[in-house]
Every structure is written in structure tokens, then in C-alpha cells.
């Protein structure tokens, strides 16, 4: 038995960032600092993009406010009752989230062409990342993976590239596709096509990207590509 405050402190401070993650966050800060900390001596003292100009923001806010109010009223009128997201908006939300993550790809935490190796690294997930024979995944090679989350649920983010020959021919970053996998929760994700029942993935467009969504073996698959 120990004092609650002390027990809580020990419980909470037991967790910490790994060396890789700390380094990644430091790199993020260093990147953002560069343009601010190294101005050219001859440059005019114009504000950097990170500098805050409250008066300008306020003027902007006032100008945009009526438009925002009209939009909110429109959405309010159009939307399903609160708490009951329609199936379509739930799918759109998932597609938007994974497309957003694809556009801001974060560094791989494990680089491996072998799914078993990636699985061994992603061992904190509450499901096992699966191999799938879905046609959309044919001719794609695994590059590695990292932890991420979809709709607040821990997920695996796997990076895939077309066959080496195609990748080299079309440039280094062209053709990269991201496959997200998370444990399927019908309440959270809503109904999705089930490949185990022969249903075809649903195809959505989000942020200019194509997203295929389906369920297989109790796992949600979301494949994002630039097509």
C-alpha cells in the first residue's frame, strides 16, 4: 500500500517516449526553428510566418465570421441528429483521416519487407496486422510500418510501393501507398464491406486521394493511393 499521490506519480512517470520518438520530435522543432533563427543580415524586418499578428487575425476573423455562421447553420440543418453519425459521413470521416495521414507521412518506425518483422515491432496493438490477397494490394511491396491511430483506435500504418521496376521508373516517391489496419469495431467504424463474405471494398475520394475501405478477418483495412 502506498499513498495515492505517490502511487499515481510512479504509475504515470513509468511511461515515457522512446529514444526514436524523442529524436523525431526534436527534429520537428529544429526544422521549424531554422527559418526563424537564421535571417539574412540584409533582409527586411518582415514578420516570419510563425510570428503572430493579433490585429490581422482579428480582422480576418471578423471578415470570415458571417460566412462561418452561415456554414454552421447550413450544416446544422443538413446534419443527422447529434450522436448519430450517418453511415456515409462516418466513412467519409475515416477516409479523410487516413488521407490526411497519407499526405503528411511520418517516418517509418520499422523498415522491413517482411510482414512478420513488422508484426514483431507493432506488438502493442490489440490485433495482429494481416496479410491480404485483395486485388488492390497485388504488386505492392511492403516497405515497413509504424504505429498510428484511426478514429482514436491504435492502428498499424504500413507503407507499400509498387514493384521495384515500376517504382524506379516513376521516381522515388511516386506510387507510395499507405495501408492502415485497425481492429474492427462496428460501433465506431460503422458497417463496412466484408471481404470474407465476398463483398468488394468501398471506394471513396478524400483530399484528392483514393481510399479503399473494407473489413477482413475482423480487421479494418484502409488503402490510400494517389490514383
Amino acid at each position: 500500500m502506498s499513498n495515492l499521490r505517490e502511487a499515481l506519480r510512479q504509475r504515470i512517470e513509468r511511461d515515457g517516449l522512446s529514444e526514436e520518438r524523442l529524436a523525431a520530435l526534436e527534429a520537428l522543432q529544429a526544422q521549424a526553428e531554422r527559418p526563424v533563427s537564421a535571417p539574412t543580415p540584409t533582409s527586411a524586418p518582415t514578420p516570419t510566418p510563425t510570428q503572430h499578428q493579433p490585429w490581422r487575425n482579428r480582422r480576418w476573423a471578423l471578415a470570415v465570421l458571417p460566412l462561418v455562421l452561415v456554414l454552421i447553420a447550413g450544416l446544422w440543418w443538413w446534419q443527422a441528429p447529434p450522436g448519430e453519425l450517418s453511415e456515409a459521413s462516418r466513412l467519409a470521416q475515416i477516409a479523410d483521416e487516413v488521407a490526411g495521414q497519407h499526405l503528411h507521412l511520418k517516418p517509418l518506425e520499422v523498415e522491413a519487407a517482411d510482414l512478420d518483422q513488422v508484426r514483431r515491432y507493432l506488438n502493442q496493438l490489440d490485433f495482429r496486422p494481416l496479410a491480404s490477397d485483395a486485388p488492390a494490394l497485388a504488386d505492392l511491396n511492403l516497405q515497413g510500418g509504424r504505429y498510428c491511430s484511426i478514429q482514436g483506435v491504435p492502428a498499424a500504418q504500413l507503407r507499400l510501393r509498387p514493384d521495384a521496376s515500376q517504382g524506379e521508373a516513376s521516381g522515388e516517391d511516386v506510387g507510395v501507398q499507405t495501408l492502415y489496419q485497425a481492429r474492427y469495431d462496428p460501433e465506431r467504424h460503422g458497417p463496412l464491406p466484408d471481404r470474407d463474405r465476398g463483398e468488394a471494398p468501398v471506394r471513396l475520394r478524400a483530399r484528392g486521394l483514393t481510399v479503399l475501405l473494407w473489413v477482413e478477418g475482423g480487421v479494418v483495412f484502409a488503402l490510400v493511393s494517389d490514383d
Binding site: R21, L28, C148, S149
Partner: peptide, 18 residues
């Protein structure tokens, strides 16, 4: 959740820096 916590921190930090 560890992964969600790291994502939240990374996204928040990006927003802060911007």
C-alpha cells in the same frame, strides 16, 4: 494508448510550431 498519445503530441506540436 501509446500510439494515439504520440500522434496527438506530434500533431499538437506541429500546430504549436506553426
Amino acid at each position: 494508448h501509446e500510439a494515439a498519445a504520440y500522434d496527438l503530441l506530434q500533431d499538437g506540436l506541429e500546430r504549436y510550431l506553426r
